[in-house]
Every structure is written in structure tokens, then in C-alpha cells.
Design a protein around this nucleic acid. Structure first.
Length: 875
RNA sequence: GCACGGGUAGGAAAGCGGCCAAAUCCGCCGGGCUUAGAACCCGGUCGCUCAGUGCGUGCGCAGGUUCGAAUCCUGCCCCGUGCACCA
């Protein structure tokens, strides 16, 4: 091993910390750049996902820093949450101590990785100095009616003994423990994210630097639907059933209505009729079904005919009214009109319960007959059986039908959203206490601002039923802030997503004691220029953070609308084709990689493996190759040290290969800079690898060119392998830290396009041929030998043929060469001799006879000397 | 079902109208260096063919647009991811 990664890494980590190299303050002289990674839950050990996430962020932060930006690159811990509490139950550990231990372990590994965080800004959400402001913001939201309490059926996880937000229910199961979620009615706290539904949706258009799929997911989640509510009169009754639809053009095809079992009219309509008892029975059966079963499209559609008739407002026909399991009370009006011919669910229902199928949209290429239909026709077509709208296309009919219905007062325009208010109550200990008190006299009383934070008690008994906080008397028993009477403190804590909904603001002024953050400083840093994290937060966290940003703006605390300018959803690290997971046993521990190969290697490998947003397969060989690359750079720089001198290279003094090297250096700077800008780190590394090869093979005696090339390489390597780069920076006698050096500038005029292209090659072949001919005084050569790198062979020969105007037979020359007794051996050997000749020719500047060639001269040296420039021999 | 992303050489993964038989890394083959190996350096790595070279096939499948397609369009087949009885 050429270098000792442990020694180098420890050394530079210490130096960075001692010199507080990465701490930043606001600086009006510089442009700011805020790089943020989704802060981790402190589980103790980093996993590969973390390493990838932070390697990406750190490379960008280091690059931007070197470019002269004032870079805010902080780290913190999302340290409230279930695992700490579960550990408390299992191991009788104190969740606070457990959490702090894990934070320290994790932070230790992050330091080992060499991430350039400003640790002075560290934020831990479980500390009162942080969660105090959760409470404060909660109270502000309460004042504005954006935080409220209501009795609601909630998603309940029996195992975690807690309520879950809709976003935390994955396929009907708890997102954490996988237990099937059940439904339960409870008094719960909500945040009114729906008040911002429209703005959150409209804002997505502005997020042009977010991945498309995340934007789509958010759009779907908000689920805005613009439609109409159509009113159906109930026959022989004063009741009106209002239904929401987005396909109002099919109103003439409505042949029944279906109500959710919870619909207020469900019982009302059958009160006192013989159907009442059965209706009650049906309703209670439906209530037994969980929400999950109700919305499962594979479940049978069940109906109960209420026996009453409604009137289709446009056809005047009487239509039956059913209760059903497949209509949801919390979307639209809880009642749906049935258009069996044009909606698959309605079609199935109608077939089962014998409702009329009435076609009102005909496909253009065939004719539908209700009795022959096997499924609903849901595509675009021509309106039929629709009174005045017959003959229109369904698209044309949409606005006309809507206008008609509204004008006739049969309907009103309506908008519906899928998004629901955010349920933030959790029946857990390890979270931010919700700052309210229940008083028998005054009701729900907010804790006054000056009494914040409501601190979590230091100790509690874990493992009892329900929330441990309920059993802490000193916490629960309090007095009413308003009337001083005995009162009970709220024991629910906040969803941890509240913590992460604004932590990025806190980094601007992490020790601010009088408010959640300093407005001026936040103004300096926000928005986050580049946010990086896992796709799993595409909806949950990102939507909540956007909501908080807007809500805080409306509280007058912020001036930005959107928190995250550019978003990168990093890809997963796979092993054996699957996500690394304990249960699959395919986890690669970053700690071991750091130990064996070093942090620099781990970083280079992980960034080189693929584009950051794509998933890639872990490869042990890939790790080794990353290490080999670093070794090569190390050797190159060590070998170059003697031949370098700081200074500007003088163009006219440069030999071809030196000019080429200089050109390559600038070309590489150009490529790497551009790739860094776009976070295409794998390309940047590729360019660096190629450049390292060039540096190794191109002969360079010019000390200034050498210096520039080596120095640039070390600098550009530093975002990827910062420790090694610092070491090389120091060993090449550069001042200060490479981490703080100015990113090399590409001087486009130094890019010698000619030297890098075939044209230039052709020119050089021509020139060399001329020189050779002149020097050798052979005006009419019998043969010409050209020795070059294989890729240039064809070009070179073509040029020589052209230049010699066909006189010497170049092809025959090679044959003649083959015929010589000393070259009877293999072609390879001929090549070796040829290269030796080329080298000799290059050294003396004169052509040499082949038999002058030292036969044992190493091929590789000849090869190194003449990668591009041809050697020409004539006879 | 809908939406989004993919299918490229032995493997991973670039390219997204001509400079593409296709970057880079790995693997494999040959050579150099070595007592030998490791490491390191060089060359090769779709098939046939040659001294140079040339030809054929070719980037999921089938068509199309174009002077020209891995790259653009259409349809199809696979694979991921997300959302799904949202009316």
C-alpha cells in the first residue's frame, strides 16, 4: 500500500477541526450556497444509504466552497422517534441517553468519513432548545386556526399503540412495524395542511429543479379534482342528495345513486320504513370493515337498496338509491351518481344489482349496445341520448353540460382534494409535548409562550399500556394557565415530521434563544440551494416542509415560498440485486470499508459507481479499483514532485506532448467543473481518471506545466478524496488547505483543440515526415515506417501515403520490414522494436536505422514517450 | 388500471441524430517488468478477414421518419417505482 489511509485521514480530520475550516458566518461579500442533506434519525451506525447521501452533498459543498461561495453545510439529528422508545421498553434504557449515545456514534462515523460539516451548527430535535420552538410554532398555528382538535376516525397501530398519519400507512400497514392498521375514533390534533392545498399544488410548477417523479407524486397526493356537485331530489321527500363528479357530461346516463354507509341521509331516508332495520344492519356491517378493506378494489361491491327513488334532474327518471361499501364519506359528498355505461365500478355494481345500463357516449368506431357490454366504455366519444348535447364530442360537451346544469340550478361547481389534514398527535413519550392544558372550566387552554418549553420529564416508566407520559403524575397534573384551577396536561406528543418540517431554518441560527430562528440570518441563507435525500421522503417530509415554509411565511417569519430550490433524490445502493437490509443479510457495513480501504476510497467508489440519482449494485471489485485509482494518483504526484515549479508555462517553449498535457489539464478542468455543477460526479471522476492517465504517459519536462497539471489534479480530487488531496497538497509544498483553495480555472485558450484532434495529428505526421526526409537527405524514400499508438495507425498511414504522393509503397514497406531476418519473430516483437526506434528517434530528433535499436529497450517506455506523436523511419 | 423511470458489449454503467463497434470501471486474454507471484505499465477484448485494411452484424422486439438512428416517432414485450374503488 502506497499510502496509509488511517494516518492521513486522522491527521487531516484533526487539522480541519482544529482550524475550524468548515465553519461559516454570514458574509455579504460572497454569494451564499446552502447544501443540505436530509438529517438522519440517529440509529447509531451509518448505512450505505447515508454514506451515499453525504458523499454526494459533501462533494458538492466542497466544490462550491472552492468556487468561492459562502457555503452553509450543516448536519443535525432527527432525534425524537420510536426506536429510542422501543429501546427503552426493551432494554429499560433511558430514551434520552440511548439517543445521545447513538448520536455520538453516528457523528463519530461522519467525522471519520471526512464530511465538511459546520459542526458548530448542529441541531438535535430532542433538545428543549429545539422543541421549544415546535411548541411555539404549534401555538401560533393554533392562533391562526391551523392547528385544531377533532374527534376523528384515525389510523391506529396496535403494536406501536399510536395514531398514524395517512402518509404513514403503507398498504394498510404501519410504516414502521408493518402491523396491520386498524381504525379508531379519537380526539386528535391536526394541522390544517388542506388550507394550503391549492398553493402547494400550484407551487409544484415552480419546482423546475425537482425530479419529475417527486413532483408527480406530490401532485397525486394533493389530488385536486375540479368537478361539479349535482343535486338529486328524493321522490316524495324534501331531501336532496348531492353527489360530486368529475364526469358530469354523463349525467344523462345516471341510473342509480350510491351512498357511503356513514352518509347522514343513509338512515334518514328509511326512517320509519320497513327497510330501516336492514339498513341499520348493513351500516353496522360496513363499519366493521376497516377503511383499508373498504377501499380495496379487489373486494366485492356490496349494495343495499334503500327502496327510495331519486330523480335524475335532466332525464326526470326515477332511479334507485343504494348504500354501498365502495363510496368513501371523506371524499366528495359521500354520495356518488352511478353511470354504469361509463364507469367500470358502476358497471359492475349495476350488473350485480340489476340497474339499467344507459349509454350516453358512443365510441366513434363502433356502436355500443347496453346488453352486450362487457365492461364500461370510458374513452372519448360522441354524446347520445343526452338531449340537447347529442352529437357533440364528450370533450365539447363538458363545458356546455356544466354551464347548463349550473344555470338550471341543478348543480354547482366544486373542487375536491385527496389530501387530508395532517394528524400530528402521537401517543408516545419520546416526542415534543403538545403545549396545551385541559381545564374543566376553561376547556382547551394553550400553554402561554413564556412557559415554554413544556419539558419532557426526565424519567418515566416504560412498558405500561399506552403513552408512558400518562403515567407521569408530575407532568400530567398541572394548573390551568387561565383560571389556576387544577388541570390536566395534554400527553400526546407531536409527530416527528413536525421536527423535520422546519429544521433547515434552524441551521441559520441554531443557538437563537428568543425565537425559532433569526429572520435576518434565515433571509441570508434560504432557500436551500441543493437538498439531497432518499426518495422515500418524496411525499411526507417534503410536503410538510413546504407547508411549514408557507405557514411560517404567513406568520411573517419568512420571506420565501419554497424551501428547496433544487432537489436530488439519490438512488439506492443495492447488493445482489436487492436493497441492503438486515433481513436479507446483504448489508455492507461502511465502518468496515473505512477501516480497510479508507474514507476516501469509499467516497470515490460510491460517487463513481453511477449517477447520484440512479441505483447501483455494490461491488467489492469496484471498491478496490477506487483505491487503486487513488494509489495511482498518489504515485503520480509523488513522482512528479521533483519536476515541478510554480509559474506560468511559456507556450513557445513547449514540446508537443507538453502542450498537449497543458491542454488536457484545461480540458479536464472544463469537463470536471461542468460535471460538478450538474452533480454528475461519476463523469467528473472519469475525467480525472483519464487525466491521471495522461499525466502518467505524456512526457513533460516543463516544470510549470507539470506543476499546473499536478496541482489541478489534486484540487479537483479534493471533493472526492479530501484527505489524500490535503496530504498531496501539503507534500507538493502548497500553502494552506486544499479544501479552501480556489478551484482551478479553465483557460479555454489553453485548450489546444488541434493537439487533441486527428487534424492536429495529421499535421504533426506531415511535419515530421518532412523533417525526417530533410534530415535523412532521402528525397525519394523507398519505404516509410510510421510508428504510433494503435488508434492513430490508419490516420497516419493515410497521411503518409498522401504526403508521399504514392511514391513509396507504405504497405510494402511494412512487408519489407516483416521480411527482415531480425524481425522474423512475432508481430508483437516488431512492434516493440519499432517503438524502441520511435523512442530513440524522439530522443535524438533524428531518424534511426532499425538495426540501431536497442533490442531490450522496454516497450512500455517507448509507448509512454509517444502516445500520439508518430515516429517515422524512412529508407 | 393510471403516472413516472428503465431495458446498451461477459458484468456494472455512459451516450440520447453524423466525430459510435459505442466513454469509464470491473472481468478476461496477450505482452512488459520480475527468480516467481502480487502490485505496477502497455496492448487487445462482437464476428470474419488483413501487412496496412476491409466487410458483416449490432444498443429489448417490430415498424417508421431521415442522406444518416443506440439516439427522434409509432406499436408491442419485459423490469423497476409510486398512486390506486377519489366518483
Amino acid at each position: 500500500m502506497a499510502f496509509d489511509h488511517k494516518e492521513i485521514e486522522n491527521k487531516w480530520q484533526r487539522f480541519w477541526a482544529e482550524a475550524t475550516v468548515f465553519e461559516v458566518t454570514e458574509d455579504p461579500e460572497k454569494d451564499k450556497y446552502y447544501v443540505l442533506e436530509m438529517f438522519p434519525y440517529p440509529s447509531g451506525k451509518l448505512h450505505m444509504g447515508h454514506v451515499r447521501n453525504y458523499a454526494i452533498g459533501d462533494a458538492l459543498a466542497r466544490f462550491k466552497r472552492m468556487q468561492g461561495f459562502n457555503v452553509l453545510y450543516p448536519m443535525g439529528y432527527d432525534s425524537f422517534g420510536l426506536p429510542a422508545e422501543n429501546a427503552a421498553i426493551e432494554h429499560k434504557a433511558n430514551p434520552r441517553l440511548w439517543t445521545y449515545e447513538k448520536i455520538n456514534q453516528m457523528r463519530g462515523q461522519q467525522i471519520q468519513m471526512g464530511f465538511s460539516y459546520d459542526w458548530s451548527r448542529m441541531v438535535k430535535t430532542c433538545e428543549p432548545e429545539y422543541y421549544k420552538w415546535n411548541q411555539w410554532i404549534f401555538l401560533k398555528l393554533m392562533e391562526k386556526g391551523l392547528a385544531y382538535r377533532k374527534n376523528a376516525p384515525v389510523n391506529w397501530c396496535e403494536k406501536c399503540q399510536t395514531v398514524l398519519a395517512n402518509e404513514q400507512v403503507v398498504n394498510g400497514s404501519c410504516w414502521r412495524c408493518g402491523t396491520e392498521v386498524s381504525e379508531k375514533a379519537l380526539e386528535q390534533w391536526f394541522l390544517k395542511i388542506t388550507a394550503y392545498a391549492d398553493e402547494l399544488l400550484a407551487g409544484i410548477d415552480k419546482l423546475t429543479e425537482w425530479p419529475e417523479r417527486v413532483r408527480v407524486m406530490q401532485q397525486n397526493w394533493i389530488g385536486k379534482s375540479e368537478g361539479v356537485e349535482i343535486f338529486f331530489k328524493v321522490k316524495d321527500s324534501h331531501h336532496v342528495i348531492s353527489t360530486y363528479t368529475a364526469h358530469w357530461n354523463t349525467i344523462y346516463g345516471v341510473t342509480f345513486l350510491v351512498l357511503a354507509p356513514e352518509h347522514p341521509l343513509a338512515l334518514e331516508l328509511v326512517k320509519g320504513t320497513p327497510k330501516e332495520k336492514d339498513a341499520l344492519k348493513f351500516i353496522s356491517e360496513m363499519k366493521w370493515l376497516s377503511h383499508i378493506d373498504r377501499v380495496n378494489p379487489d373486494k366485492d361491491k356490496l349494495g343495499f337498496d334503500l327502496g327510495v327513488k331519486a330523480i335524475n334532474p335532466v332525464t326526470g327518471r326515477e332511479i334507485p338509491v343504494f348504500l354501498t361499501n365502495f363510496v368513501l364519506m371523506d371524499y366528495g359528498t359521500g354520495a356518488v351518481m352511478g353511470t354504469p355505461a361509463h364507469d367500470q365500478r358502476d358497471f359492475e355494481f349495476a350488473k350485480k344489482y340489476g340497474c339499467e345500463v344507459r349509454v350516453v357516449v358512443q365510441p366513434r368506431d363502433r356502436k355500443l349496445a347496453p346488453e352486450c357490454m362487457e365492461r364500461a366504455f370510458v374513452d372519448e366519444g360522441i354524446m347520445v341520448n343526452s338531449g340537447p348535447f347529442n352529437g357533440l364530442s364528450s370533450a365539447e360537451a363538458m363545458p356546455k353540460v356544466a354551464t347548463h346544469l349550473v344555470k338550471e340550478r341543478l348543480a354547482k361547481r366544486a373542487v375536491n382534494y385527496k389530501i387530508r389534514d395532517w394528524l400530528v398527535s402521537r401517543q408516545r413519550f419520546w416526542g415534543t409535548p403538545i403545549p396545551v392544558v385541559y381545564c374543566d372550566k376553561c376547556g382547551v387552554v394553550p400553554v402561554p409562550e413564556d412557559k415554554l418549553p413544556v419539558r419532557l420529564p426526565d424519567a418515566a416508566e416504560f412498558g405500561l399500556v399506552g403513552n408512558p407520559l400518562q403515567h407521569v403524575k408530575s407532568f400530567v397534573e398541572t394548573t390551568c394557565p387561565r383560571c389556576r384551577a387544577k388541570a390536566r396536561r395534554e400527553t400526546d406528543t407531536m409527530d416527528t415530521f413536525v421536527d423535520s418540517a422546519w429544521y433547515f431554518l434552524r441551521y441559520s441560527s441554531p443557538r437563537e434563544a428568543k425565537k425559532p430562528f433569526d429572520e435576518k440570518k434565515v433571509w441570508q441563507w434560504m432557500p436551500v440551494d441543493q437538498y439531497i435525500g432518499g426518495i422515500e421522503h418524496a411525499i411526507l417530509h417534503l410536503l410538510y416542509a413546504r407547508f411549514f415554509t408557507k405557514a411560517l411565511r404567513d406568520l411573517g417569519l419568512l420571506e420565501v415560498d419554497e424551501p428547496f430550490q433544487r432537489l436530488l433524490a439519490q438512488g439506492m445502493v443495492l447488493k445482489d440485486g436487492a436493497k441492503m437490509s438486515k433481513s436479507l443479510g446483504n448489508v455492507v457495513d461502511p465502518g468496515e470499508i473505512i477501516e480497510r480501504f479508507g474514507a476516501d476510497t469509499a467516497r470515490v467508489f460510491i460517487l463513481f459507481a453511477a449517477l447520484p440519482e440512479k441505483e447501483f449494485e455494490w461491488s467489492d471489485q469496484g471498491v478496490e479499483s477506487a483505491r487503486r485509482f487513488l494509489e495511482r494518483v498518489y504515485r503520480l504526484v509523488e513522482a512528479s514532485k521533483g519536476g515541478m515549479a510554480r509559474g506560468e508555462a511559456k507556450e513557445k517553449d513547449l514540446a508537443q506532448s507538453e502542450r498537449l498535457l497543458l491542454s488536457k489539464a484545461h480540458r479536464t478542468i472544463q469537463r470536471v467543473t461542468e460535471h460538478m455543477e450538474n452533480m454528475r460526479f461519476n463523469y467528473a471522476l472519469q475525467a480525472l481518471m483519464e487525466f491521471a492517465n495522461d499525466l502518467g504517459r505524456l512526457e513533460c519536462r516543463d516544470r510549470n506545466v507539470k506543476w499546473f497539471a499536478v496541482r489541478s489534479l489534486v484540487q479537483m480530487l479534493s471533493p472526492f478524496a479530501p484527505h489524500l488531496a490535503e496530504e498531496l497538497w501539503q507534500s507538493t509544498k502548497e500553502k494552506g488547505f486544499v479544501s479552501l483553495s480556489k478551484w482551478p480555472a479553465c483557460d479555454a485558450s489553453r485548450i489546444d483543440v488541434g493537439a487533441e484532434t486527428a487534424e492536429a495529428f495529421v499535421e504533426s505526421v506531415k511535419a515530421d515526415l518532412k523533417n525526417v526526409l530533410a534530415l535523412s537527405k532521402i528525397q525519394k524514400p523507398k519505404a516509410v515506417y510510421v510508428f504510433v499508438a494503435a488508434k492513430w495507425k490508419a490516420t497516419a498511414l493515410a497521411v503518409v501515403r498522401e504526403a508521399c504522393k504514392g511514391k513509396p509503397d507504405v504497405g510494402l514497406a511494412m512487408k519489407a520490414l516483416m521480411a527482415r531476418p531480425e524481425f522474423k519473430a512475432q508481430g508483437k516483437q516488431i512492434e516493440a522494436f519499432a517503438r524502441a526506434a520511435a523512442r530513440k528517434a524522439g530522443e535524438t530528433g533524428k531518424p534511426v536505422a532499425l538495426d540501431e535499436c536497442p533490442s531490450r529497450d522496454p516497450l512500455n517506455k517507448a509507448r509512454n514517450a509517444f502516445p500520439l506523436k508518430p515516429a517515422i523511419y524512412v529508407e
